[in-house]
Amino acid sequence: PAHPYDRLKTTSTDPVSDIDVTRREAYLSSEEFKEKFGMTKEAFYKLPKWKQNKFKMAVQLF
């Protein structure tokens, strides 16, 4: 299930529990994912792991 970005980011005051914290981005809706990352999930997962992590750090999901 998708969760709002505000509850997934590492600085959230009301974090979602029971998620894989190493894959926070996977819980974003497709729309919100595209808004935050500027690309689709499919394109994101084709990137090298280090680049994925760099993007995730930039949007507080790492």
Rank of each mutant, 00 (worst) to 15 (best):
T40H: 09
K9S: 10
F62G: 15
P1D: 12
K51C: 15
A58Q: 13
I19K: 02
F33A: 01
S12I: 02
S12E: 04
T22Q: 09
L28E: 02
E42R: 10
D18I: 03
N53Y: 09
K41G: 02
E25L: 10
E35D: 12
T40P: 05
V21Q: 11
P15M: 04
Y5Q: 07
Q52R: 06
F44A: 01
D6I: 00
D6N: 01
K56L: 08
F55V: 10
Q52L: 01
E42G: 07
A43I: 11
R7I: 09
M57K: 13
D20I: 05
M39T: 01
S30T: 15
D6L: 00
S30A: 14
K51G: 00
Y45A: 05
G38K: 11
L61T: 01
Y27P: 06
M39K: 00
D14H: 10
R24I: 11
S17E: 13
S29L: 02
D18L: 08
A26Q: 14
P48S: 03
E32L: 02
F55N: 02
M39N: 00
V16P: 06
P1C: 15
L47T: 00
Q60S: 10
E42I: 11
F62H: 15
I19T: 03
T40D: 13
K54D: 10
K9C: 15
F62T: 15
I19L: 04
E25T: 06
M57C: 14
D20E: 09
S12W: 03
F33V: 00
T10N: 14
S17W: 13
K9M: 12
K54V: 14
R23G: 03
G38M: 09
T13W: 07
P1M: 14
P1I: 14
M57N: 05
K56V: 04
R23L: 07
A2C: 15
F62C: 15
Y45V: 05
K51P: 00
Q60K: 11
F37P: 00
K41E: 08
P15N: 05
F62S: 15
K51M: 15
L28C: 09
K41I: 10
D18H: 08
A2K: 15
K49H: 09
L8N: 05
T11H: 06
Y27T: 04
K36Y: 15
Y45C: 08
K49N: 05
S29H: 08
A26M: 14
E25G: 03
S17M: 13
E31H: 12
V59S: 05
R7E: 07
L8Y: 07
Q52M: 01
K41T: 08
A26P: 03
E31K: 10
E32G: 03
F37T: 01
L61I: 04
P4T: 06
R23H: 09
K54C: 15
L47K: 00
E42Y: 12
K9P: 07
K9T: 13
D6P: 03
G38F: 07
F33L: 01
Q52G: 00
Q60I: 09
Q52K: 01
A43F: 11
K54I: 13
K36M: 13
I19W: 07
K9V: 12
F33G: 01
N53I: 14
K54W: 14
L8G: 06
L47R: 00
D18K: 05
K54H: 09
R7M: 06
E25V: 09
R24T: 11
